[in-house]
């Protein structure tokens, strides 16, 4: 699968143009990371429709039915992935966890991406003193040991979903600013921007029509990279008890609770572990593919 994902787009692009529409569609599909897209689609579907597809209430404990094994290991169909130490349904909690992972991931990517892009555009387009200040602040944030500062800030504010998102946005916008500022600087000097200035376009029009559309591709690539990173960080913080607070089901929190039952019911760590790994692996593979498709300059990396 990985070989396909890496090898096909080039050959699809360079090969002779297929004759029939079916062959053309097939060629385009072959270049896509289909399995990762399918896995991510399942996770997104589960996240969006969580309340409707969860077989049980994810937070409802039932001590009489605790620590049941999954199907295939002696479990019953009523709890396909078994139950945790409090008797809560693991499948329902995994689905609920998908929802919170995606929500935190998207919120942070939108927040940090928005803030980072705004600062990059202001610094790169207007230059001068503004640029110097923004660039220095960006350097500071890039040099801060992120995890250590993030957990202490979350600890001081108190663990909540909102605080988690705010802290992660506050700590991660700098990556976007660093990369995109360079892009803006480059585009600003392009002939078409100079022409637009000569033709009498205002700054806003140049920013909106010429600069922003040209940094969308690197922005999408950065956002995909960050999405899987944020999902991992959220899981790590929830694992330490400093992320999304219980009883809300999160993959990291499930792992943290499940690790006390290693040897008793290993499914409690294996299932949320697989959920995190498959989701992040899919996002990374889709990101690699997007990078090849959207940005010829990055292909060599």
């Amino acid at each position: 699968m990985t070989q396909e994902a890496q090898g096909m787009p080039q050959s699809a692009a360079l090969g002779p143009r297929p004759r029939t529409a079916v062959a053309r569609t097939w060629n385009r599909l072959r270049g896509m990371p289909l399995l990762p897209l399918a896995i991510l689609a399942v996770v997104v579907f589960a996240g969006i429709f969580a309340p409707f597809i969860e077989p049980h209430d994810p937070d409802h404990p039932d001590l009489l039915r605790n620590l049941q094994p999954p199907i295939g290991f002696g479990g019953a169909w009523s709890y396909p992935f078994g139950t945790d130490s409090l008797g809560r349904d693991v499948l329902s909690r995994l689905i609920d966890g998908a929802r919170i992972s995606l929500f935190v991931g998207l919120a942070v990517v939108i927040g940090a991406g928005g803030l980072g892009t705004l600062l990059a555009v202001v610094a790169g387009y207007f230059r001068g003193a503004v640029d110097v200040v923004i660039s220095r602040v960006t350097d500071v944030f890039l040099a801060v040991p992120f995890l250590l500062v993030a957990i202490s800030v979350v600890g001081a504010l108190g663990a909540s979903t909102q605080n988690l998102i705010l802290v992660l946005v506050f700590m991660t916008w700098s990556g976007y600013t660093r990369v995109l500022r360079g892009e803006v600087l480059r585009i600003r000097d392009a002939d078409y921007v100079k022409l637009a200035q000569v033709a009498g376009c205002g700054s806003l029009r140049i920013l909106g029509r010429h600069i922003l559309p040209n940094i969308v591709n690197p922005l999408i690539i950065l956002a995909t990279l960050q999405l899987s990173a944020v999902i991992i960080i959220e899981a790590s913080l929830s694992f330490l008890g400093l992320g999304v607070p219980p009883p809300q089901a999160t993959w990291g929190g499930m792992l943290s609770a499940g690790k006390d039952y290693i040897g008793v019911n290993n499914a409690l760590v294996i299932l949320p572990g697989l959920a995190i790994a498959l989701t992040c692996l899919s996002i990374n593979l889709i990101g690699d593919w997007l990078r090849r498709v959207l940005d010829p300059k990055f292909r060599a990396l």
Binding site: T2, L255, I276
Partner: peptide, 21 residues
């Protein structure tokens, strides 16, 4: 290649737990 991809998708605490297991 597969190990390298997994390295970037699997958080370290997960590796720790699986090693322990």
């Amino acid at each position: 290649t597969i190990i390298a991809l997994l390295g970037q998708a699997v958080p370290s605490f997960l590796i720790a737990i699986f090693l322990m297991l």
